[in-house]
């Protein structure tokens, strides 16, 4: 078969909404784009453990502590599922870690903001996980099989994350003056970064078109962003809190909320490494990895010794 006929087979599958599997032929840029997107997604889960992990030791009740711990652990699991999906494309997890640690690979910028109060656990669960779910649900039908299956698992587990976040916010919003203030403060700080999570505006998102064609992206950044704003503004009402956007108003004609201008300078500054916590987050990941090297080596050495011993026994 010629490359052209392989490519035709691949395109036919895309058109018929069939899945592409690891051993199927695929164009190089499909493979590359997928590796970039899936590993970036996996890195986001792993780095995302840090801002919330911050509060595990300080959670205000035993129940909250257990829930938060289980939630942060889930994020580790999600990272693992996604790394595994990327590994089917011919890259190792170690290589992906190396790309993260050297700054070659990106992760979601939202995790470069600090978690300074307990209410941030609520805001992250509600807004950040909310935005993530909006991104992820369509990916359950993405064209690459292992990625789609990983996302199905992630979305299933993720559903409790947003609920626990909203529950924290609701408890605070219904609580004392101080608690309400804490909740509003968290909303003020996390609102805009959450909106930015959907990525640059469509007219400024160069890879979007190809990703849509490959069905590794199913809605544009702005479509998802609008959906998020519409849903979240309503939820804010239930909390009795105020969205920190004076330009926010319902547009009858569009059937959507209009929202204020996004500060893209801030967005690009954080992407380029100048967010409040970029250095700390990367440092924490690198430290964990480097400190773990002797542990990983020891486990391999032990496994090797065992194998040698049992083969000697068999020989004897």
């Amino acid at each position: 078969m010629t490359v052209q006929s392989f490519e035709k087979g691949f395109n036919d599958k895309l058109d018929k909404e069939l899945t592409i599997e690891p051993r199927d032929w695929m164009p190089d840029d499909y493979r590359k784009t997928l590796i970039r997107q899936i590993s970036q997604h996996a890195h986001s889960e792993i780095v995302g453990m840090l801002p919330e992990g911050n509060w595990i030791t300080r959670a205000p009740s035993l129940r909250r502590k257990a829930v938060l711990l289980a939630k942060v652990q889930d994020e580790g699991g999600h990272g693992l599922y996604l790394y595994s999906a990327a590994e089917t494309l011919g890259i190792t997890r170690d290589e992906m870690f190396d790309q993260l640690h050297t700054g070659k690979a990106k992760y979601s910028s939202i995790f470069n903001y600090p978690t300074t109060t307990w209410a941030d656990m609520g805001a992250i669960g509600w807004l950040v996980d909310g935005a993530a779910i909006m991104n992820q649900v369509p990916l359950c039908r993405t064209s690459y099989g292992p990625y789609a299956r990983a996302m199905v698992r992630v979305c299933k587990e993720e559903s409790f994350h947003q609920r626990q976040g909203f529950e924290i916010m609701l408890t605070l919003a219904k609580g004392t003056e101080q608690q309400k203030k804490m909740a509003q403060d968290a909303l003020n700080r996390w609102w805009w970064p959450s909106i930015m999570m959907f990525g640059p505006a469509d007219d400024n998102s160069p890879n979007s078109e190809m990703s849509m064609r490959y069905r590794i992206k199913r809605f544009t950044n702005d479509e998802l962003r609008q959906k998020f704003v519409d849903v979240t503004v309503e939820q804010t009402r239930i909390l009795g809190l105020e969205v920190p956007d004076k330009d926010l108003k319902w547009n009858e004609e569009r059937g959507h909320y209009d929202y204020g201008k996004i500060n893209w300078d801030e967005f690009w500054a954080v992407v380029k490494g100048n967010g409040p916590c970029n250095k700390e987050r990367l440092e924490a990941r690198k430290t964990a990895w480097e400190n773990g090297a002797w542990v990983r080596d020891a486990a391999m050495a032990h496994s090797q010794k065992r194998k040698e011993r049992s083969s000697k026994k068999e020989a004897a």
Partner: peptide
């Protein structure tokens, strides 16, 4: 032990 969460030597053992 919970202090390890997010800082383990390898993802599987972190979990």
């Amino acid at each position: 032990i919970s202090e390890w969460c997010g800082h383990g030597p390898v993802l599987e053992q972190d979990i």
